[in-house]
């Protein structure tokens, strides 16, 4: 049996690397005595597959993993047992059963949205989406695989929103993940800085969602399953 879970990673855990997250989750599975499946052979590992890596320094509102079990377990039961042992700052929010035909997360997640929380200032953020989206190219220095070379983010950006709140301004950016262009949050930050946003004005950054995008529609990794 397979489960897909959606969880939240708060700010106090945002500095964990990918391996740390894996360890955190498998150790929680063990503490909660979840009947997880193990791989065969030497050095058996829990059959857990995490969605796209949450970058170090960013917290996540809706992150995902798939897990294989050797026994039936009610998703509600799973949530309860896990949340009892997860550390402060991490919580399972939803869980559903997957059938065997469902593709793995890594395969289906192809988009994500990042939110930049900014200090209100004289800067006119409301003009930002149109200004950026109307460009042909949005060049930054790559921070990914080909570090330092010019990278055009424009084809990987789908949507930009700006929302004003009393204490802050939130800029949401919907981007492509994986192929053909993987847009990183730190590249987006560079882009904002190129647009005149100051470093001190950035109060917080988080990944708000992960998506399976089909054309202009952004599905959550739960939607197509249901």
């Amino acid at each position: 049996m397979r489960l897909r879970a959606e969880y939240r990673v708060e700010s106090n855990l945002k500095f964990l690397g990918n391996l740390d997250m894996m360890n955190l989750m498998t150790r929680a599975l063990r503490r909660a005595a979840i009947p997880f499946a193990l791989s065969e052979g030497f050095n058996p590992h829990v059959k857990l597959s995490m969605g796209t890596v949450l970058p170090v320094g960013v917290w996540g509102k809706k992150e995902y993993f798939d897990l294989e079990l050797i026994q039936e377990m009610h998703p509600g039961d799973f949530i309860e047992k896990m949340n009892r042992v997860l550390p402060l700052g991490m919580e399972i929010q939803q869980c559903i059963k997957l059938d065997d035909k469902q593709d793995a997360l890594m395969k289906i997640i192809n988009a994500a949205s990042y939110t930049f929380v900014l200090k209100p200032s004289d800067y006119d953020y409301s003009a930002l989406p149109d200004r950026l989206m109307s460009q042909d190219k949005l060049l930054v220095k790559s921070r990914g695989k080909q570090k330092g070379i010019d990278k055009d983010l424009r084809p990987g950006i789908f949507k930009i929103t700006v929302n004003y709140y009393e204490q802050s301004v939130m800029i949401g950016i919907w981007v492509n993940v994986g192929e053909p262009i993987n847009v990183r949050y730190d590249e987006l930050l560079d882009l904002l800085k190129d647009q005149g946003v100051k470093h001190e004005e950035v109060l917080d950054i988080f990944r708000s969602e992960n998506f399976m995008r089909a054309g202009n529609v952004f599905y959550s990794p739960f939607e197509k399953v249901r």
Binding site: N12, L13, F15, L16, D20, V56, G57, L88, G89
Partner: peptide, 13 residues
């Protein structure tokens, strides 16, 4: 912490 290597050394919790 965003500027140091292995920040998880210093986060506690």
């Amino acid at each position: 912490l965003p500027n140091v290597s292995k920040p998880a050394r210093y986060t506690g919790s």
